[in-house]
Design a protein around this nucleic acid. Structure first.
Length: 229
DNA sequence: CCAGACGTTGTT
DNA sequence: GTCTGG
DNA sequence: CCAGACGTTGTT
DNA sequence: GTCTGG
């Protein structure tokens, strides 16, 4: 799945990478992005792409309580088109979530602690996770609407299976326009984009367990560690 | 018809 | 909002 | 995803 | 064990 990732590239570089306008809100770089954090997402409006901040954890517009968001951090590619919680967002509110890489935890036989791995592009660049977004207008009319998002997951590819059986959907640049186009109602075509990425775009690096605590942050979280066999 | 859910993951 | 279960 | 809490009452 | 918070 995808429950923790890295977004440390400065906003102007993210904007340049995805050919968006300047971001509306500036977020601090994070080496430990956790659910409920504010994150960047790329949306398209007409031919123009925008880089906006969203709360990670989808709150459907019909939700009575925003708390549901903390349990909606991922959506399964296999069911995103049919599940009530996601259908309308899948049809009309798709986005890309930029990331420098993501973490997955591998269970180690005979040991209680899990080994975290940082999965990242071999030669730099950013991942574009497939995501959905929503706007929730809570009971308080005075409060600004809550903008939230979720990351779509799929089966692990050959690069990831040794660590975990799920991974985020990573879209190639060739798919970005089709995915972001609000007028694209070809759900069959959209569904075919939600497949495991080719393994060669992933390099795995074992890192320290400090990343497990959301209070920890900083580039040192990416330092490689020795893995006990 | 109304009431109630609407999610993913991991683990056993 | 929309679907499922009763 | 992992870490950490997991309770009620009354008082300020 | 299970839920909430980050």
């Amino acid at each position: 799945m995808c429950g923790r990732y890295v977004s440390a590239t400065p906003p102007d570089q993210i904007a340049a990478y995805f050919a968006t306008g300047a971001p509306e809100a500036l977020l601090e770089p994070s080496y430990n992005v956790a659910p409920t954090d504010d994150v960047y997402a790329v949306l398209a409006d007409g031919g123009l792409r925008h880089l906006d901040a969203f709360h990670w954890g989808l709150v459907p517009y019909w939700a009575k309580d925003a708390k549901i968001g903390s349990r909606m951090i991922n959506a399964r590619a296999e069911t995103v088109a049919t599940n009530n919680a996601f259908t309308s967002a899948f049809q009309k509110r798709r986005c890309l979530v930029p990331a420098d890489g993501f973490y997955e935890w591998a269970k180690r036989p005979g040991q209680k602690t899990k080994q975290p791995y940082f999965a990242h592009p071999p030669d730099g660049g950013l991942y574009a996770f497939a995501g959905l977004w929503e706007v929730w207008k809570g009971p308080n009319r005075d409060q600004p609407p809550l903008r939230s998002c979720t990351i779509i997951t799929t089966d692990a590819n050959d690069a990831m299976t040794s660590v975990h059986d799920r991974m985020p959907v990573i879209l190639p640049e060739s798919a970005w326009d089709a995915w972001l186009d609000r007028d694209n109602d070809d759900v069959a075509l959209l569904g075919r984009l939600l497949v495991p990425a080719p393994p060669q775009i992933i390099t795995l690096r074992p890192v320290g367990t400090a990343v497990g605590n959301v209070r920890n942050n900083g580039a040192q979280l990416l330092d490689e560690v020795e893995v006990e066999p």
